[in-house]
């Protein structure tokens, strides 16, 4: 069987007010980040690229208290599953922070979130392929 997700506690970088350093050196609060901040950071960081990861299914996880998110990732449309706690925020293109349980995200991190839904396109990163 697959290993359980590593932790039920998320790092505090999702806490409202957390200071985030972009690849350009600019500092922003997590709640102020915009799509362009991620896109620009990936452009200047080298080695990393931003992928569009579309949520195609959201299910209860086999691990209690987790949800399983199914994505299709990047140009290759690769299928990737991720077990996360429902309060885990994802950054959706053109929308901003979104989670399966915006109320839990607000409770734990005070971070305003939309509800993550099937069809949402999230920002993810992968290694830039060398061709």
């Amino acid at each position: 069987p697959p290993l359980p997700p590593h932790s039920t506690t998320l790092p505090s970088h999702f806490m409202k007010g957390a200071i985030i350093q972009l690849a350009t050196g600019e500092l922003k609060r997590v709640e102020d980040l915009q799509t362009q901040d991620f896109v620009r950071s990936a452009e200047v960081s080298g080695g990393l690229k931003i992928d569009s990861s579309t949520v195609v299914d959201i299910q209860e996880s086999q691990w209690p208290g987790f949800v399983t998110l199914h994505f299709v990732v990047g140009e290759q449309q690769s299928k990737v599953c991720l077990d996360v706690p429902p309060e885990h925020p994802f950054f959706v293109y053109g929308q901003g922070w979104s989670s399966c349980s915006p109320s839990q995200t607000a409770q734990l991190f005070a971070l305003p979130c939309h509800r993550l839904q099937v069809g949402d396109v999230c920002i993810s990163i992968s290694l830039q392929s060398i061709s």
Binding site: H13, I19, I20, S45, G74, V80, L82, F91
Partner: peptide, 25 residues
């Protein structure tokens, strides 16, 4: 006296998942 508090700064890439697509056939 109030001691200055250190502020944690997190890198941008820690906020988004690393989803490595499987290699194409």
């Amino acid at each position: 006296n109030v001691e200055p508090r250190s502020v944690a700064v997190f890198p941008w890439h820690s906020l988004v998942p690393f989803l490595a697509p499987s290699q194409p056939d």
